[in-house]
Simulated scan of single mutants.
Amino acid sequence: MTTVLPVRRPGAAAALLPAGDERSTAGRRADRGHHVLGRTAPWLVRGVMGIAVLAFAFLAVGPHAFGYRTMTMLTGSMAPHIEPGDITVVTPLRVTDVTEGMVIAYHVPIGDRSLVTHRVVSVEHTPDGRVQVRTKGDANAAIDPWTAVLEGDTAYQVRAVIPELGSAVQLLRTPLVNQVLLYGAPTLLAGWVLLSIWRPTRNEPEDGRA
């Protein structure tokens, strides 16, 4: 018995899959998804790690290297210039250089001596060399009901405001997020390293064919 095998003529088009057969389309979609994931995942990990490094440098290293301090605004007394959850960057200046209009951070002279960030509305230099200030929150209707004596030789003036960063810092301090960062950051780093090692180069066929 003779078996006749069909031979495709040179240049002839390949037979199409029957209508409704989605194997080719599904395969292409899967390959495309893997390709996009392989391209995106390393950059996503790099972005997360980069943001974490920058935040650590700004909040932990910068104050020691450049002398500034960061504070989180907790109230709306300075809105709209400084909103609750914003981070303020303060730098030291001599107490004798404090003038009206500056926004400074200081401890109130009453109650629990909490830290407040308000605008200076008046400055008085006493005969014994002390500096007394009256302050007011931009959003408050009245001047603060106290006269504060700026102790020491250094005051802290607000130089910059970073919106909403304080809210993120507060979120990072919650127990749940701490646990996620504790275990998630090493996992992301390990995934980044593995993707870098196993990612095929441009000169190597991804399917292993020569």
Results as ranks from 00 to 15, higher is better:
108 V>C: 02
22 E>T: 12
86 D>T: 00
62 G>H: 05
186 P>E: 01
128 D>S: 09
64 H>F: 13
116 V>Y: 10
189 L>V: 10
39 R>K: 09
32 R>N: 12
101 G>R: 03
55 A>D: 04
89 V>W: 01
46 R>W: 09
165 L>E: 00
165 L>R: 06
171 L>Q: 09
66 F>L: 12
56 F>K: 08
188 L>D: 09
22 E>D: 14
115 L>G: 06
103 V>F: 00
14 A>V: 10
123 V>G: 05
44 L>R: 07
48 V>K: 09
64 H>T: 14
70 T>K: 12
109 P>N: 11
45 V>S: 13
65 A>V: 15
121 V>L: 05
204 E>A: 09
205 P>Q: 10
79 A>T: 04
192 W>N: 12
81 H>T: 12
187 T>W: 13
168 A>T: 05
122 S>K: 13
156 Y>M: 05
83 E>K: 06
130 R>G: 00
124 E>Q: 13
49 M>L: 15
22 E>R: 14
19 A>S: 02
24 S>H: 12
199 R>P: 02
49 M>S: 12
20 G>S: 02
209 R>T: 08
201 T>G: 12
181 L>I: 14
181 L>A: 10
125 H>E: 05
131 V>C: 01
171 L>C: 05
105 A>M: 13
19 A>D: 07
34 H>R: 15
8 R>V: 09
104 I>W: 02
163 P>F: 04
83 E>A: 08
77 S>Q: 05
85 G>R: 07
86 D>Q: 01
191 G>C: 14
20 G>C: 05
102 M>N: 08
155 A>V: 01
10 P>H: 07
194 L>W: 15
144 D>K: 09
26 A>C: 08
81 H>I: 02
131 V>Q: 01
181 L>T: 08
